[in-house]
Nucleic acid binder design. Sequence first.
DNA 1: CACAACTCTGTACGGCGTACGAAAATCAGG
DNA 2: CCTGATTTTCGTACGCCGTACAGAGTTGTG
Lengths: 258, 258
Amino acid sequence: MSGVSTEDNGDGDPRRAIELLWGVPGPPRRGPKPKLTTADVVRTAIALADADTIEAVTVRRVAEQLGVSPMSLYTYVPGRAELLDLMIDHAHGELPVPDPGLGWREALTAIADQLWALFHRHPWLLQVTTSRSALGPHSFAKYEHELRAVEGIGLDDVEMDAAVGLVTGLVRTTARSSLDAARLVRTSGLTDAQWWERAAPVLAGIPAADAAHYPLASRVGQAAGEAHNAAEDPAFIFRFGLARVLDGIETLVSERQQ
Amino acid sequence: MSGVSTEDNGDGDPRRAIELLWGVPGPPRRGPKPKLTTADVVRTAIALADADTIEAVTVRRVAEQLGVSPMSLYTYVPGRAELLDLMIDHAHGELPVPDPGLGWREALTAIADQLWALFHRHPWLLQVTTSRSALGPHSFAKYEHELRAVEGIGLDDVEMDAAVGLVTGLVRTTARSSLDAARLVRTSGLTDAQWWERAAPVLAGIPAADAAHYPLASRVGQAAGEAHNAAEDPAFIFRFGLARVLDGIETLVSERQQ
DNA sequence: CACAACTCTGTACGGCGTACGAAAATCAGG
DNA sequence: CCTGATTTTCGTACGCCGTACAGAGTTGTG
């Protein structure tokens, strides 16, 4: 089974967190030279998350990786939550600046592709939720670039925001389902087919789970499952969704141009 | 700041979990009469999650609510992860059976509206991720109803799956952003405006955070933020996205019909 | 009536984030 | 140079968490 819980922590004074995100140096230095930098901590945390999941990022483990006691991490980062925020912004720094010469459709496609790739490089990005104060320079730049893609095509400000949110939201959900499936295969040691092979007899013994009760779900679910297992196809659902979303935006843009 | 981590646990033998989801009675009863039922545990857990977040659902707390020792919960549920799966399926049981007489557009709209409402009644649904074995009767029925909405409009099986996934994914992301904002206001005790009021001077002191570097992000972000605070407007981004997605599907359907 | 099956519970283990206070290192001012 | 303020680093400890394990009590079956 699964089981995911999503912690959230209060959101008191944003000051220090923002300063960290934007790399403000802080007051003059007196005491002993720091062994590390905040960036060191962020990088090791990302490496741990990349190699495993966001779960692997614990204060104790990050400290161990860095050869330092757990508590000394709190010199560089106010707490685990802020570390996650820093990781998010840092990872978004990998997104390239989009080519300004593209039309809005190509530009949004490029942005979606890059984001899709980023999520596959750093799956933990989909396991963390960000809040207001997580808005660091790279996230800000990402937003700016996304908006640039739809500027001047006839949408007002609120619609521009909604349109880029629609595209990035699509990438999030499709990438998540792609990655969840892959991770599940990895951690359970069972492929989808093997798992169903084991589950099928159990389900078969349950009258209410008869395929006759769920004709469409059975038929379509099987077809989608097989297609999904085709290994080149986890991206199909992404391509399909992106095409629909772009067509939908195009319809709106056409209406506006009349 | 934020901070969310998403646990995942291995996915060993699906048998017991599936049986629980589908309400299989299990072998005959010998020992003392159980004080509770699995459904009791699930209901209490949902009540706790509704009143707070998914974080509030701990084995110890659920047991306390039920007036029972923590360990005795393991009689009714294999572990916390399976409890979350049961909660998810149970909650999806609240979704009504859609009116079969509707056209696909109205049917998908109704489904999206119902799901939007469900997520607002049980925000924790967006804080948990499900896995293969979480497929209980209600989730299955939900899938069946969704597919029914797009049956016979000219899509093949894989496209039908992608289309309903697109709609439900949209609801997930937009509902999440709506709910995250609301929860943040609640837990931080600061409205969005108050938070920015406090953050603004800090940001102003950072050269790199100048609005001149992010002209579109500043302008559009402010407009979107104000619109979002209009209190009737968290749903705008949802309505906008849904309209675009449906238009996009309509374009595909039209092409197919030619 | 004995025994097997089942429920319930207390204790305990290993993990987590992090509060707190002490020790060591560094720099500014005299 | 020395003193004292400042900062980093660290060990210990607290209160959580999920849950393994073993025992005690309860019930139905042979």
